[in-house]
Nucleic acid binder design. Sequence first.
DNA 1: AGAATTTTTAACCGCGACGAACATTTATTA
DNA 2: TAATAAATGTTCGTCGCGGTTAAAAATTCT
Lengths: 223, 223
Amino acid sequence: MSKAEISEAVDHEDVPRRSWKQDPDGVRANILQVAREAFAQKGLSGTRIDEIAARTSTSKRMIYYYFGDKEGLYLEVLADAYRRTREAEDALELEGLQPEEALRKIAEFTFDNHRRSQDFIRLVMIENVHEARHMPGSVEMSGENSSAIRMLEDIYARGLEAGIFRPGLSAVELHWHISALSYFNVSNRATFSHIFGDELFSEEGQNTLRRHVGDMILRLVLV
Amino acid sequence: MSKAEISEAVDHEDVPRRSWKQDPDGVRANILQVAREAFAQKGLSGTRIDEIAARTSTSKRMIYYYFGDKEGLYLEVLADAYRRTREAEDALELEGLQPEEALRKIAEFTFDNHRRSQDFIRLVMIENVHEARHMPGSVEMSGENSSAIRMLEDIYARGLEAGIFRPGLSAVELHWHISALSYFNVSNRATFSHIFGDELFSEEGQNTLRRHVGDMILRLVLV
DNA sequence: AGAATTTTTAACCGCGACGAACATTTATTA
DNA sequence: TAATAAATGTTCGTCGCGGTTAAAAATTCT
């Protein structure tokens, strides 16, 4: 019998287990948050369950207790991340702005918002590598109730009516372009700056890019 | 002795080994190609070496023989992918075009070229998830000899001289925007179409988007 | 008290990267 | 041509990592 085995056996004898408070929701939320950061950092197969467990205030076993398995956890992390982002977008206020101003604002807000939501962007990157295999067909991830689209539809309609926007565009297309420019700025920073330097990521650089994004979207729709 | 063991023993006795041709470059290239597809599909940690080996015309042994380990292989796949892409970009011909036409052409060419280079895009996505940790500081991946940048510099300078482009922009910024719009169209197709449908990916949809990309870049620089 | 739920402790075990050893065939060089 | 080097195949083994589970203890609910 090795020393380790002996000490283990001894440990078992009279060490009383610690007591604890039950807090299902708290534990769940804690795991979810830690897992979000972990998956965003390392991806699905790159993340170690032990790694997640270590950073929670609970144990590895509880992950399986609440989420079944690794993929189940990833799934809920993803759904939760979309939910949060949707909420952030809802907060944008465009009341009383002219179509031109409103469109620039929504574009530049998206640019800034994406910069703030690095974890979310990374999760989306990862999910696209997986070809969206884990996106549940749930209501959470449907575009029907996207406030971004609704806002763009409204703005574009008003601009058309005012005769300052050219016809033939769609809200989804506008959303596409705005997203592309804002998303890429976060998603591809690593490789791009490795190749072309990081001047574009200085405060000035980012201010310039933000303005350009507004310019491009606006000029795209103006007659 | 099991049946399998018996048949193995029998196999060993008088079955002469097949002969082969030595082809180091061919074998290397074969592995590299298979590995590129595999890594592009599943990522670094998601890819199994056995999986790669199975799809090559050689054996797992040779992978380690030529590339050392998994990460070494990934590294060379990445460098090779950039090399190929660089070459594709070099092929673009802009002789005799006016700045406006040339700019639109380079933008729309990039859009199409990215669509054709899905594996490359996926490798870049993956490498960005890894925060470009594997991009060697080699010449291969430096922007100094990027023909895309040189072309844009030339076009922009000519447009400025002609008084049709507004000053204050840089070639890298233009490249950034063109890349963003073209890259996102490939990288985020999965999640985006899951949420907003896939009309934008029909032939018409893509034609529209391509034209928009040209419009946006052009209108961004025009006075 | 008894049942259901939450949490702890401690293993299990398969997969997959990697290496060893050896045989064999092809290319190169002296 | 002989000797040497390089390239390829085959087979087996190992070793740790990491996802997953078993079983029991503590807590909460009724």
